[in-house]
Design a binder for these strands. Structure first.
Length: 289
DNA sequence: CTTGGGTCCTGTGCGC
DNA sequence: TGCGCACAGGACCCAA
């Protein structure tokens, strides 16, 4: 599901409830998500204080006062619901499919805080996962050791992309989805960034000239920042008055717009869809060259 | 090393 | 209304 902007939206939504809270009850309703939950998951977290709520790429990070960090990845369909009876609050930060009520069958992990709030993790497809990692060795852990730079951080620039693209025959679409090159992009924002930069998703990356790479770097930053400001993207229509939900889907120029006219000023192209590496790629054949 | 393909799992929307 | 199929925002693993 969620790409960087959605995960960041979820992070901001969970932060007030989880950061600084003690987990008085932890429940794992099944032994595994995508992978088995780590040994002693419930015991190691019960009673721990969550120091803060962070994010690295598409991962949520909850370091605890026990020297371990709860690492969470939402996969395609992971979502959280916050229930705070004392505050009368019930919300789903960053949720992308509010129309469908969270199905209790897919409530896999529950955290209850000392303030009386319950945070529930739902994940129908179970592509998401959770792990507990020593906070000291986070960067060296299996999840992060090969991860590329944050696209909104200082290490991500045109020089970095140029080096990653050098001599590569694959298109930029495929390479930008590779989390080792840059960490946090997914199908939607790669399509959008390439549309903005006017680069064909199929062009051998090694043949993309430097000015285009610079434009791409900027397009990636811009689209992610705009999406975060919009609270991420919500794909399916929802009925419900929750201003916290994302609305960046209304700004898509390529993703999901097959057959629609390209909105780039002066462009007479029509958005096309192709399958690349098993995923849909949306692009304008006219101005993305 | 790169590259392509299959895989995990469930839900939804479409055409017939 | 039912059925089968294509597709879904991720990413690992393996073979060539």
């Amino acid at each position: 599901m969620p790409e960087l902007p959605e995960v960041e939206t979820v992070r901001r939504g969970l932060e007030p409830t989880l950061a600084g809270a003690r987990l008085v009850r932890v429940e794992a309703r099944r032994p595994d998500l995508r992978f088995p939950l780590p040994e002693g998951f419930v015991q190691r977290l019960t009673g721990a204080v969550v120091l803060s709520l962070g994010r690295r790429a598409k991962y949520l990070l909850a370091p605890t006062d026990r020297g371990q960090t709860l690492v969470m990845h939402l996969g395609m369909t992971g979502r959280f619901e916050i229930d705070d009876p004392r505050a009368g609050v019930r919300e789903r930060p960053g949720d992308f499919a509010l129309a469908a009520p969270a199905d209790p069958r897919h409530a896999h992990v529950l955290f209850e805080t000392d303030a009386g709030a319950t945070v529930t993790y739902f994940d129908p497809r179970r592509f998401g996962y959770m792990d507990l990692v020593d906070s000291d060795g986070l960067e060296e852990s299996r999840w992060f050791s090969a991860l590329g730079p944050e696209p909104l951080g200082p290490a991500f620039d045109a020089a970095h992309l140029a080096a990653a693209f050098k001599d590569r025959k694959q298109g930029p679409k495929t390479l930008l989805l590779d989390q080792r090159i840059v960490a946090g992009l997914g199908n939607i924002y790669v399509c959008e960034a390439l549309w903005r930069a006017g680069i064909s998703p199929f062009k051998p990356a090694g043949k993309i000239r430097r000015p285009k790479i610079e434009a791409l770097t900027e397009a990636i930053r811009a689209v992610l920042e705009e999406a975060i400001r919009a609270g991420g993207s919500t794909l399916r229509d929802y009925a419900g008055a929750d201003g916290a939900l994302g609305y960046f889907q209304h700004s898509f120029q390529a993703y999901g717009r097959e057959h629609e006219p390209c909105q780039r000023p002066g462009c007479r192209g029509v958005i096309a869809r192709a399958v690349q590496g098993g995923r849909s790629t949306f692009y304008c054949p006219e101005h993305q060259t």
